[in-house]
Amino acid sequence: MSAVIERVAPLRWTAALLAALGLRGRTLVIAVPMLWLLIFFLVPFLVVAKLSVSEPAIAMPPYLPLVERDGARMTISLSFENFGYLFDDPLYIKAYFFSIRLAFFSAVLTLLIGYPIAYYIARSSEARRSVLLMLVILPFWTSFLLRVYAWQGFLRSNGVINNFLLWTGIIDQPLVMLQTNFAVYLGIVYTYLPFMILPLYANLVKLDEALLEASADLGGRPLPTFFHVTLPLSMPGIIAGFMLVFVPAIGEFVIPELLGGPDTLMIGRVLWNEFFSNRDWPTASAVAIAMLIALVIPIMILRTAQQRVEEE
């Protein structure tokens, strides 16, 4: 008994020390992720927010400091003009909606492709399941950039696909696939598919087989069973997967840049333009902040949908 107490003692000492500092175990557990968020999300966000209200200048760095000291006088100048631009020029709004639309349809496509795959994996034997999951995650082992470049090789007019189609005689002129929105959809769906499959799989694998049997027993053929039982019960997985694809796809830059054509007007590219071509860091930051705020809306919609589904 006393041995136990002795062994526990150091633990209690630490606990007491932390309590003296106003920290309890639970606070501490929360503190780690909080700190993480603080350092890797809030701080960069504040830096960008600060930039977005600065005034651009030909300088190094290319904006004026917010705070200026002139002897005892200190002036803080915030410029909201950068946000004004975003509404002056329909380009930004158009880019925003274009990005949302593209991300939305990409997510829908990813869902349509990912669902059967996730379903198949979830219904496979345990041994095969882990192999299949491995295959889903496998692409992550090579560089994302490399894989997108590989698609260029597939899609270009003298690339693998065109050469094959020309060879078979299905077409006699190479199809223009690279630098089109089609290629962007393809790239996004391809890249984000695992993010759709994994949450769907996690959900579907929990689905009680007895419910499917019950449905069949009550006269439900496979298709009605799917729509009335499987689909509604996998809603949390669908929403989670949708969010994991839709949200990052909105801000996607690399895929539209490498696979997209000139008219793939994604907000990520607009941001890139502001930053690099215009070297207007403040406006670029304003675009980023506005995008973040605008993103909150679809995310909130999805979140509430998810909560509603989960409550049921």
């Binding site: 007895a210 419910l211 019950a214 069949a216």
Partner: peptide, 20 residues
């Protein structure tokens, strides 16, 4: 004959009620 083609109904050991 598939379950949905049989003149039987079953009450499951686990009830298997549709939770949604």
């Amino acid at each position: 004959k598939a379950p949905y083609e049989r003149p039987t109904n079953m009450m499951f050991q686990s009830y298997a009620l549709f939770p949604h």
